[in-house]
Each structure stands twice: as structure tokens, then as C-alpha cells.
């Protein structure tokens, strides 16, 4: 294998770029899971976000307005799931699966109906990359880390903010309490339904932006059917892999991104592993992690359980 600075820099850059949608979505999912909601519907929400972003782009012609559209569509999509899950106490897994099927169909139909295939996308350069002055001149990491999409920088800041939020703020304490002991939170006068609902809205916004990133940054403003290709499910796995900790989730996303990147650039460094095996590796890693780490801490104890007052 060859390890010269340029290939390493390229590889790292690709890992981060490809890990970014995962990072955005899994940070969003993290918030839901911390309050006890396992949101399998992430895949569908991301699809709506991806569609919404392109729709917004065609409407306004402004890339950042498109990102906002993606966030908005993500929020609307999650609203449907949240009404079912947080308010009506529907089974989180079942709704998630149903919603993903629905989203695949709905976005495809909407693409047919409202998106113009001949649309000439404006330059997406300023959402795709921004060189941070001075830092982007650094060797290796300058190109790789400090010349990425501003959305990614935002995600990193959000990860740090989430970390502070859960660790040091009262609302963070409440969010965690709802996920670790919903009935205790209820008895303390906290509305479990409202907290879960708001957590899911955050998830929707983040996942919607993840979808926007996919279409705007990763595929030049074009929406194709099933553009997420399982990244939503992956993001759920990333949260678990990252042990519900924003910083670890960030690193896990880059790891998954690296596996993705290697399939394109593996040959450049003389790596002769078949791309599908590379893509498989993070999942194998996650499974091995389960076997090794085992029962120690398996996440918020209320995860997946609808809240019902009067049950212990």
C-alpha cells in the first residue's frame, strides 16, 4: 500500500464528505433516542428532506434556501411520525417501517409531479465547500478537514452543542430523564409527550438537512429515487455504534464514511479489497463491538417503549 500525504489527504477528505450526511442524521437520531424514541423512519425522513431541498432549489434558485427547505420538509415528515409515535403511542418500529415505504413512494411520485428534469442547477459551490482561512493551508488536514461544506462545519458545531446540552443544561437533563425513566419525569411534572415530540422535531430538522446535503453537496442538486439508499438505517446503527454520545457518533460517522470512501479510492493506495466488502466492514465492526462490549450499557432504558402513565 502507498501512503503519501496527498492520497491520505484525499482519502480523509472523502471520508468526511461521505460521512457528513450520516453525521447529520445520526446526530438528529441521537436526540430522539436519548428521549426513548427509536426512529427507524429516519430513512424516509431523509428522503423527504432530500426531495424538499431540490424542490426548494428549483423554487428559489438559492442553495441555502434549499437547505432550509430540506430542514422544513424533514420537520414536516417527522411530524407525521411523531404524531403517531409520541401522541398516539403507535409502535415505533412498525410506524418507522410503514413510513419508509410510504416515503419511497411519495417522493418518487412528487419527483414525477413537481420536479423539472431539465432544471439547470445554479452553482452549489458555496454550500459544497468553504475554505476556512489559514487552517485550510495546513498540510494534509487543510484540504481534508478545513475545505468542506459549511453544512458539515455546522454539524460539528451542533455535535459539540449537543454534548454540552446533554451534559450541562437543565433541558438536557430533562431529555435524558425522559429516555431513562419516563415515569419519573412524568411525576416531576414534565410532559413526556411534549419532550419526545420536540426531540423528534430536532431529529426531523437534522435529518432533513442530511437529505439536503445528499442532493445539494453529494449529487449536484439532483434528486433520484431512493437517493438515501439505506443511509437512514445506517444512521440508526451509527448512533448505537457511537454509544449515544455526540462526539463518538461524530467519529463513527467518519469511520462509516471512510469505508465508503475506500471503495472509490482504495485502488489509489493499492488496497485491493472489493468495494462491497469495504461497505460491509462498518457493520461487521459494529457487530463485533456488540460481542465484545456486550451488556455494559445498552442505551437509554426506555428506548422503543411508548409511555403510558400508571405503568411502573
Amino acid at each position: 500500500m502507498v501512503f503519501d500525504p496527498i492520497t491520505i489527504s484525499l482519502l480523509l477528505a472523502a471520508a468526511i464528505r461521505l460521512g457528513a450526511p450520516m453525521l447529520l442524521a445520526s446526530l438528529g437520531e441521537l436526540v430522539s433516542e436519548r428521549t426513548g424514541v427509536l426512529n427507524i423512519g429516519l430513512e424516509g425522513i431523509m428522503l423527504f428532506g432530500a426531495f424538499g431541498a431540490v424542490f426548494g432549489l428549483q423554487l428559489t434558485g438559492m442553495p441555502y434556501a434549499a437547505v432550509a427547505f430540506g430542514a422544513l420538509w424533514g420537520m414536516l415528515a417527522v411530524g407525521v411520525v411523531a404524531i403517531a409515535v409520541a401522541s398516539l403511542r403507535a409502535d415505533q418500529i412498525v410506524v418507522g417501517i410503514g413510513f419508509n415505504i410510504l416515503a419511497l413512494g411519495a417522493t418518487s411520485l412528487l419527483r414525477d409531479m413537481v420536479l423539472s428534469p431539465a432544471f439547470q442547477s445554479p452553482s452549489l459551490r458555496n454550500v459544497s465547500s468553504y475554505r476556512i482561512p489559514y487552517f485550510s493551508e495546513l498540510p494534509i488536514v487543510g484540504r481534508a478537514v478545513f475545505s468542506q461544506s459549511p453544512i458539515l462545519y455546522g454539524a460539528v458545531i451542533v455535535a459539540i452543542l449537543f454534548w454540552i446540552f446533554f451534559r450541562h443544561t437543565r433541558l438536557g437533563l430533562i431529555f435524558r430523564a425522559v429516555g431513562e425513566g419516563a415515569s419519573a419525569a412524568d411525576a416531576a411534572g414534565i410532559s413526556v409527550t411534549n419532550i419526545r415530540f420536540s426531540a423528534m422535531l430536532v431529529t426531523g430538522i437534522m435529518t432533513g438537512i442530511a437529505g439536503a446535503y445528499l442532493t445539494l453537496v453529494a449529487s449536484g442538486g439532483v434528486f433520484v429515487d431512493n437517493i438515501t439508499g439505506g443511509r437512514g438505517y445506517l444512521a440508526v446503527a451509527v448512533v448505537i455504534f457511537g454509544r449515544w454520545h455526540p462526539i463518538w457518533v461524530m467519529l463513527a460517522s467518519i469511520l462509516f464514511g471512510a469505508a465508503d470512501a475506500l471503495q472509490y479510492q482504495g485502488q489509489a493506495i493499492g488496497l485491493s479489497i472489493s468495494p462491497p466488502l469495504l461497505l460491509m466492514s462498518p457493520f461487521l465492526l459494529a457487530l463485533i463491538a456488540w460481542v465484545l462490549v456486550g451488556k455494559s450499557k445498552t442505551g437509554p432504558s426506555e428506548i422503543g417503549i411508548p409511555f403510558l402513565r400508571g405503568q411502573k
Binding site: 437543565r170 437533563l173 430533562i174 435524558r176 430523564a177 431513562e180 425513566g181 415515569s183 419519573a184 419525569a185 412524568d186 411525576a187 416531576a188 414534565i190 432504558s301 411502573k312
Partner: peptide
């Protein structure tokens, strides 16, 4: 109210439980 089945978050510290409530 002190419930029969305590309304405490088991994975939290005493201080966190008190601050929560």
C-alpha cells in the same frame, strides 16, 4: 408524593434526580 414504585431515574445520580424534580 412518594410513590410505591419510586419515580426516580435509576441511571441518574441523587443530585440529578433532585435537580430534575
Amino acid at each position: 408524593m412518594v410513590h410505591q414504585h419510586f419515580k426516580l431515574v435509576p441511571s441518574f445520580t441523587v443530585a440529578e434526580n433532585l435537580r430534575l424534580a
